Every structure is written in structure tokens, then in C-alpha cells.
Simulated scan of single mutants.
Amino acid sequence: MLQLLYLPVLILLLLFYFRLAIQFKIIDKPNQRSSHSRITIRGGGIIFPIALLLQALFSRFEYPLFTLGLLLISLVSFYDDLRPLSNKIRLLVHLLAVSLLFMQAGLMAYPFWMIIPVYILVIGAINAYNFMDGINGITAAYSLITVLSLYFINETHISFALSEWLIVAALSLLVFNFFNFRKKAICFAGDVGSVSMAFIIIFFILLLIIKSGDLKYIGLLLIYGLDTVTTIVFRLIRRENIFEAHRSHFYQYLANRKGWPHLWVSVLYMVVQLLVNVLIISSDLSSVPFLIFILVSGIVFVGLRFVVEGQRSLLGRRLANR
């Protein structure tokens, strides 16, 4: 009940940020890569790290290294929302923040050769989460399902984290959704929102995996993972620069090319991930069945993309015409 007191505080803080954002023109103007058509406040996702920093303060810093890492990665992401930032600086801060996260989770006790792939996976996942934030409601709705699933697991299956932190993260998502999950969003999450939320969710998923010893909980981010990985593969096939901005994700195709309302697409991703989470939580999947489940899910997702988008869109004219 104490955490519910955060709700009015977070609403007031976000409204205060809106005033500052308008005054200092922290806004997002539509361009050719945008999925929106009106000027909108950028960086509203700053409420995510603010909520967790408040929780850290009032709980006497129960996760001090994680909190410091969240602060660092949120600051550099917010700066990136304001003006272009060197990729080298961004990567350096991400490495430092993730290192602090690993130290907090106890991952540094593992052999060095095991940690390197996890660095690559986590930093890649953080950036993928950022790329998936392209239409109204998708980041906060999808994240809310993941956070609530983690809370449910923590309360009913295996205790791996302090529930208060998950509650506060969920409340910050609810507040942000009120202003973003609508046909004409008042604000966007910005890099500060998507990156910080990815950092938060990955931290708690890592805690869960380490405590349970079960890799199946990676599946709590399955739908985002499938969209990101398949998009990268198809862009490589089309010989595109995967580091350039684009609108090639499946959710972008549905929203921009098929003309589906943004909220429909966001709800679709949220509901499908919820069904996956229910399967993961309720089943007793071991390593081999889980890998088979991932493989089958990938095949189904690729097949769906071919049916909906077509060969020419996914493979390019050169290969599609062969």
C-alpha cells in the first residue's frame, strides 16, 4: 500500500517535466521515418528511472550498484534525446552501467568466458528495446506485462527480488501509459524511457535466471526478440546497413504500411507476449524443450512475416525475383 503513494507523486513529476519540455522545446517533430504526424513531447519515459531512484532513496539504496548504473545509462540516454551523442561515449557508458548491473546481480562471480557473451546479449537487448519503441503505447504496454509477470513469479513461484521495486516500476508504466497509450499521444518515451526500462527489466530477469538457474525466463522478452532478430537478418539479406535508422520492424509494417491503428498493434504485441508468459510460468520447460519452443516460435514468426509482408518486402527485389 505504501508504494501506491508513489502514484500521485509520479503524475505530478511527469506533468512538471511536460512544462519543462515545452519551455525548452524537448519535442519530437515528425519526419520521413516517424510513425506519428504531430509534434509530441519527447523524453516522457524519464519517469521510469525517476520512480526507481525515488524507491532507492526511500529504501536506503537496497540495490546501490544497479541504481548507479540506472542513473548513468538514463543520463546519457536523456542527453542523447536532447542532441546527438558520440556512439563511442554511449557504448562506454552502456558498458559501465551494465558492469554495475552485473556486479549487483552477482554475475561477476562467474568465469570471464561466460560473462562476455552475456555482455553482448544484454547491450544488444537494451538497444533492441530502444529500436522497438516506435509507435504509441508499445513500449509501456509491453513492459507492463513483463514487469507484472516478474512480480507474479516473485510472489507465487520463486522469490528473487524485492517486490516493492517491481511495484514502483509498474506504477511508473501505468502513469506513462495514461499519457502515451492513446491515439494522439501527449508524450513519447524517448531513449531515456526505452533504454532505462530495458535496463530495469533485464536486471530483474537476470536476478530471476540466476536464482532459479532456468534460462526459460529469457522468453519473457520473446516477441521483442523475434521482431528484432528477424528484422536484422532480413536487412542483412537485403544488404542494408543495420546501423542506419529504418522502419523495417514487423510492428512498423503493420502500423505504417498496413495502416493498423498504433494501439491495435501495441495490444497485439502485449497480448501475444502475455500468452507466452503464461506458458512459461505454468509449464515446466527444461532446456531442450525451451530451445525447441524458441525455434518453433521463430519459424512461425518468419512464416507470418512472409505471409503478411511478402517476399519482395523482406528479401528485396533481387532475391524475390529469382
Rank of each mutant, 00 (worst) to 15 (best):
Q3D: 06
P8Y: 15
P8G: 13
Q23S: 14
I26K: 06
I27V: 14
D28G: 14
Q32A: 10
R33A: 01
S35K: 04
G44C: 09
I47K: 03
I47V: 15
I50F: 15
L54H: 05
F58K: 02
F58I: 07
E62K: 10
L65D: 05
I73R: 10
I73E: 07
L75E: 01
S77P: 04
D80V: 04
L82M: 08
I89H: 10
L92W: 12
V98A: 04
Q104P: 07
L107G: 04
F112R: 05
I115M: 10
V118T: 14
L121G: 00
I123N: 00
Y129M: 03
S143N: 10
I153Q: 07
S159Y: 12
S163D: 13
E164T: 04
A169I: 02
L173E: 06
K184C: 00
I186S: 04
I186L: 13
D191M: 06
V195T: 13
F204N: 09
F204T: 01
I209C: 04
Y224G: 08
G225I: 05
D227S: 03
V229Y: 02
I232F: 15
I232A: 14
F234H: 15
I237D: 10
R238D: 08
R239I: 04
E240Q: 15
F243T: 13
L268H: 07
L275P: 03
L275V: 09
N277G: 14
L279Q: 09
F290E: 11
I292M: 12
L295E: 04
V296A: 15
V296I: 15
G298C: 08
L304I: 09
V308G: 08
L314C: 08
G316C: 10
G316E: 01
R318C: 00
